[in-house]
């Protein structure tokens, strides 16, 4: 897999393109525009860019106010502060008020790296998933991120984009046709399904390759949209492969895995395994070492696949009464 831009970079470039097309787009940041890449928009459209300073809560309030007057507002910071720092503001001023605010949060997950636990947002999906009305996209690469940014501008209502700091591996060809709320089936197989998004999609594809060498055929789904979740794809995966693994750069509690588990529980329960951060905070370290230390690598996914398949077989043999 080739290395491409970070999802935050693709976001920044797409914002500029959107700014040229639509004078109604306004961008806000909270003293992190060089990191979130909104600085690209700020440079070209200084009149439509507002820096809130290090004041995330005020930024969200301003975003809601601008949106109430018809602006399409993108607000950016690190995921740990947005939603983390301004959950109530997002709940009341944006979600409950159904404002057309796009929260584009960069530096999500452990791969923030050396800054450590205080800056590693591993709970943002749990927070945002709890807010009615928020659509959520977790793009895996630059192509997906550009699409997500355009979708955010065109779909009315609150939306959350979960972006990452490091360069991402390219999964998609330019111009790939995504649909909001529809998972992408990247590989097929009937032994198990790996559902992943964001940074973990590349790991999932590597895991699938390792599985293939071991004679295990897995389906890989990119669950780029976490809300609304593609229930059909989850149900089909359960019925057709009988074992599911969810891999994400997020806490076990409240992330994509929880969303998938809910659908399985309601629709078609099969063994499910989670490759996610167990209940613990992160720490300083380089991204690769962190992913390894917290069990978020292709190898960890392979192990989870094998476990899920073993559980599936056990259930089958119990059913057969052997």
């Amino acid at each position: 897999m080739k290395q491409g831009m970070a999802t935050r970079e693709a976001y920044g470039h797409t914002l500029v393109a959107l700014g040229r097309e639509n004078p109604n787009i306004v961008v806000l940041d909270a003293d992190l525009s060089k990191s979130t890449m909104t600085k690209l928009f700020a440079e070209e459209f200084p009149d439509r860019f507002f820096d809130a300073g290090v004041a995330e809560q005020n930024m969200v309030g301003m975003a809601a106010g601008l949106a109430s007057c018809g602006k399409i507002v993108f607000a950016s910071s690190f995921a740990v502060f947005l939603p983390g720092r301004c959950f109530d503001q997002l709940r009341m001023s944006v979600a409950y008020s159904q404002m057309n605010v796009k929260v584009a949060a960069s530096h999500s997950g452990l791969t923030v790296g050396e800054d450590g636990a205080s800056h590693q947002s591993i709970e943002d999906l749990a927070l945002i998933r709890s807010l009615p009305g928020f659509r959520i996209i977790v793009p895996a690469d630059e192509v997906a991120s550009a699409w997500a940014t355009r979708t955010a501008a065109s779909v009315v209502g609150p939306m959350y984009l979960r972006l990452g700091r490091p360069k991402s591996l390219i999964v998609y060809e330019n111009g790939h046709d995504f649909v909001l709320g529809k998972a992408v089936r990247l590989l097929d197989g009937d032994d198990a399904t790996i559902i992943a998004n964001g940074r973990m999609l590349a790991e999932a594809l590597q895991a699938a390759a390792i599985c293939r060498d071991k004679g295990i055929a897995v389906r890989v789904l990119d669950m780029h949209t976490v809300e609304p979740l593609d229930r059909e794809a989850v149900k089909d995966a359960a019925m057709e492969t009988g074992a599911v693994v969810v891999a994400e750069e997020h806490l076990l509690n409240g992330g994509t895995g929880s969303a998938v588990a809910l659908v399985l529980a309601e629709e078609y329960p099969v063994p499910i395994e989670f490759v996610a951060i167990k209940q613990a905070f992160g720490q300083s370290g380089d991204p690769a070492s962190l992913l390894k230390a917290y069990g978020l690598t292709a190898d960890d996914i392979v192990a989870a696949v094998e476990k899920a398949i073993a559980r599936k077989r056990q259930i089958v043999s119990v059913r057969r009464g052997s």
Binding site: E114, D115, G116, Q283, S284
Partner: peptide, 14 residues
Amino acid sequence: SLRKLGSPLQGHPD
């Protein structure tokens, strides 16, 4: 050891 995995000296004070 600042900012290295497992270091007592985290990127931000702990």
